[in-house]
């Protein structure tokens, strides 16, 4: 028995490669664009850097033993008294900017991704419920979504943070509240179409529970637009977090994201010390652009209307 299974396995594996699975087709289509592929690679590197920040960054910006106020506001390329070269200079507190940026990226990406995931979970559930049950449930939910979306995200977030106060958890909560409505609207849109298809009717006839129909049958078929909105919204969330931190209502000084680093540099900008704000901004820009480019390509690839 064993030997037969062993013999069959490689053949099965080999034939699997040739079959054009939807996933494989999706990958080929995605990698078709050089720009998007580059963006994906850059994004991969950024995520890697954020995950392994303590291993990669030249110094630990939180380690007070290493950080010296004597090194503060050094222009890029200067050497510290200990012989450490500050590639991109130091900030107002004497932290190496490269290290501060890598740690800042960690916080920025973390807040953006976490809030995105939670907002997606909440929004998708609410949107599915609205589309599936219809009637009054749908009316009430969509009215709330409409009203919330008629106010700009930054305003809602600003007020929420004024109430909640500063902190990583607080800003994540604010971003979730700001974002869920986008997901709800997207999911409802595609679920409305899917709901009337035969497989949902079949599932209903089989007397499968509502929950199972919603999450096992309806949700998987609504995923493509959800993924697209998810990437773009995450970029928005990162940008929004940076903005709020800049306004002084986002993160506390003890946990500097890229936005807070830029904000710190603002004070020194008028005296010509541009790098403290400039480089974290570039890092933020690269992050957001690469996410947006990946999102754009995802939209093109996953859009069934553009028959590829």
């Amino acid at each position: 028995m064993n030997t037969i299974a062993e013999q069959v396995a490689p053949i099965a594996a080999a034939s699997e490669v040739k079959v054009e699975t939807p996933f494989r087709r999706f990958c080929t289509a995605f990698l078709d664009s050089k720009v998007a592929t580059t963006a994906l690679i850059v994004l991969g590197i950024l995520i890697f850097m954020a995950l392994f920040a303590p291993l990669i960054s030249p110094t630990n910006p939180y380690d007070l033993a290493v950080v010296s106020i004597l090194d503060s506001k050094m222009p890029p390329g200067t050497k510290s008294l200990d012989g450490v070269t500050f590639l991109l200079g130091t900030d107002g507190a004497g932290r190496d900017l490269v290290s501060a940026m890598i740690y800042g990226l960690r916080i920025s990406l973390g807040v953006g991704v976490m809030s995105g995931i939670f907002a997606m979970a909440i929004g998708a559930t609410v949107g599915l419920i609205a589309a599936y049950f219809g009637g009054r449930t749908e009316n009430i939910i969509m009215r709330i979504v409409d009203i919330q979306l008629s106010f700009p995200a930054i305003l809602v977030a600003l007020i929420l943070l004024a109430i909640l106060g500063k902190g990583v958890d607080k800003i994540t909560i604010a971003l979730i509240i700001v974002q869920w409505a986008y997901y709800a609207r997207t999911v409802r849109g595609s679920a409305l179409v899917e709901r009337n298809k035969e497989y949902i009717e079949a599932a209903t006839c089989l007397a499968i529970g509502h929950r199972r129909i919603l999450f096992r049958h309806l949700l998987p078929n609504c995923l493509p637009p959800l993924i697209v909105v998810g990437t773009i919204q995450t970029a928005h969330a990162i940008s929004l977090e940076a903005t709020l931190s800049f306004l002084g209502v986002g993160l506390p000084v003890s946990e500097p994201s890229l936005g807070l680093l830029i904000s710190n540099g603002f004070d020194y900008m008028l005296s010509g010390k541009y790098w403290i704000s400039f480089f974290p901004g570039i890092a933020l820009l690269i992050t957001i652009v690469s996410i947006n480019l990946v999102g754009d390509q995802l939209r093109d690839v996953l859009n069934p209307r553009l028959d590829r």
Binding site: S239, A242, F246, L247, G272, G281, L284, L285, I288
Partner: peptide, 23 residues
């Protein structure tokens, strides 16, 4: 236009100040 979408407003503002006002 992709850049315009992606650039955080406040950072662009800072850069404007840096280039057109300071430099």
């Amino acid at each position: 236009s992709i850049l315009g979408f992606s650039l955080p407003t406040f950072w662009v503002g800072l850069m404007f100040i840096m280039v057109f006002a300071v430099m």
